[in-house]
Design a protein around this nucleic acid. Structure first.
Lengths: 214, 214
DNA sequence: TCCGTTTTCTGACTAAAGGTCATTTAAGCG
DNA sequence: CGCTTAAATGACCTTTAGTCAGAAAACGGA
C-alpha cells in the first residue's frame, strides 16, 4: 500500500487502470511474455508507477489474479430456482454455463488459468494461500449447503469433498477455456454442442457418484 | 538433435550429465529461478554446450520433465500380487506408496510438479502434448484393465475416466509432494501416519465411488 | 494567491540472465 | 602426421525487471 491513510480517488483510479491493462496483457501473452513497460504505456503511466503500486511483476500478477478470481460468481450465486433444485443442479448450472461466461469475457478466465498453471513457485504459493484464505468461489459454503440438504455424503471429511470439487471443477473449467491444455477432451467451440453437453453430463454424473449420499 | 546419425558415446554422456544437473536445479529452484550458466558450470560444460544440445531453456526443461515422467513406474507396474487384487488395489498401492517414493528420490517428482504448475504457456502446451502422446504412467491401459475386469463402469466414455484418474492422482501426488500447494490436506511427514492413511483411504473411496461399476 | 513541504511520478540507468557466434579445440580418418 | 569436419567455448549482445535521483504535482497554512 502506498499511503497508509486514505488513498485519493485519483490514485485508486490509476491503480485500477493499471490492473485492467495488466489483466489484458497477462491474458493475451502469459506471465513471462507480458511486458511491464507495455502495460505501463498502455495504462498511460510510467514504468515506475507500476512498480510503485505493485512492487514486482509477480505482485502485479497476483493482484490481477485476485481481481479475476473475485470477479467470478460463487457457487451459491446461482439463481434461486436452480438452488432449490439442490447441490448437483447448481454444479451442473455453472459447469454448463462456463463456455457462455468465458465467451462473454474471457480475460479473467485466462488470467486464472495462467495463475493455475503458468507462474513461478513463489507466486503459485501465494495464489494457493489466497484461495485457501478467501475461498472466492465459496466452495466451502457450497459443500456445507449440499451436506445440509442431505445430498452430499457425510462419511467423508468435508474438507476432502471441498478439495475434490475444487480440483475437478478447476480442471473442467480449464479444459473448456483452452483446448490446448487438454486437447480434444471438451472440444472446441466449433464442435457440435450435443457433444459438449454429453461431456458435461458425464462429468456431473462422475462427480455425483463420488460425493452424493449413498 | 545434434548429429543426425549415431551420437558418439561421449556426447550422449555429456547430454545426460547436463540433464541430470538441470533436473536438480529445476527441482531446487523452480523454472524461472534456475540458471542456465550454473547448470552448465556444475555439469562441467560451457553455456554454449547447454544451448547447443537443448536449444533453449524451455527445451532443457522439457527434456528434464520428460526424463522425470519416464522415470516413474506405470500403474500396471505394480507387483503381480497387487494387480491380482484389481484396479482399486493398484490405485491404492501407488497412492499410498507415493510418500515413500518421493522420499527416496524427490527430484523427479518436484520437476513434474513444476512442469504441471509453474512454467510458461508454450512449455505447458508441449508438456500436455507429450503426456497425451506418450501416456507415461499408462493411465489408458490401466483404465482398460479396470474395465476389462468389470471393476470400472462402462456407461461413461473411457476417455473421461482416464482424465478423471489423471486429474485426481496428479493433484493428490502434488499435494503430497508439497504441503504448500494444498496446505494441510495430506499433512507433512511429521504428522501421524494414521492421519495420512485416513486421507488416502478417503480419497480412494471417493474415486472408487466415482468410477466403479454400479 | 503564494510559498514551503510532502508525496507522487517519471524515465534514464543498472543488473542480470537468456541466447549468439566467431574462434578455438578436439575428433575422425587416410 | 596432416587435413577436414564437427564440437566446444566464453566474450559479447539483447532484453527486461527493477531502481532512484530529480521533476512535477498535491497539500496546507499564511
Amino acid at each position: 500500500m502506498r499511503s497508509a491513510r486514505r488513498a485519493p480517488e485519483r490514485q485508486r483510479a490509476r491503480q485500477e487502470r493499471i490492473l485492467q491493462v495488466a489483466m489484458e496483457h497477462f491474458a493475451r501473452s502469459g506471465y513471462e511474455e507480458a511486458r511491464a513497460e507495455e502495460i505501463a504505456a498502455e495504462a498511460g503511466v510510467s514504468k515506475g508507477a507500476v512498480f510503485g503500486y505493485f512492487e514486482t511483476k509477480a505482485g502485479l500478477f497476483l493482484a490481477a489474479y485476485q481481481a479475476a478470481a473475485r470477479s467470478f460468481p460463487a457457487y451459491l450465486d446461482a439463481p434461486p430456482g436452480v438452488r432449490e433444485d439442490g447441490f448437483f443442479a447448481v454444479l451442473r448450472y455453472w459447469v454448463a454455463r462456463t463456455p457462455h461466461l468465458v465467451h462473454e469475457d474471457w480475460i479473467p478466465y485466462r488470467v486464472t488459468l495462467i495463475g493455475n498453471y503458468c507462474a513461478g513457485l513463489q507466486l503459485r504459493r501465494e495464489i494457493t494461500q489466497f484461495l485457501a484464505r478467501e475461498d472466492p468461489y465459496g466452495t466451502r459454503a457450497f459443500v456445507r449447503f449440499g451436506i445440509d440438504r442431505g445430498e452430499v455424503r457425510r462419511d467423508i471429511d468435508p474438507l476432502m469433498i471441498v478439495s475434490m470439487v475444487d480440483w475437478l471443477t478447476d480442471r473442467v473449467q480449464d479444459a473448456m477455456v483452452t483446448e490446448e491444455l487438454d486437447p480434444g477432451l471438451f472440444g472446441s467451440r466449433t464442435q457440435p454442442p450435443e457433444e459438449r453437453d454429453r461431456r458435461v453430463s458425464e462429468f456431473i454424473e462422475l462427480l455425483r457418484s463420488a460425493v452424493a449420499t449413498r
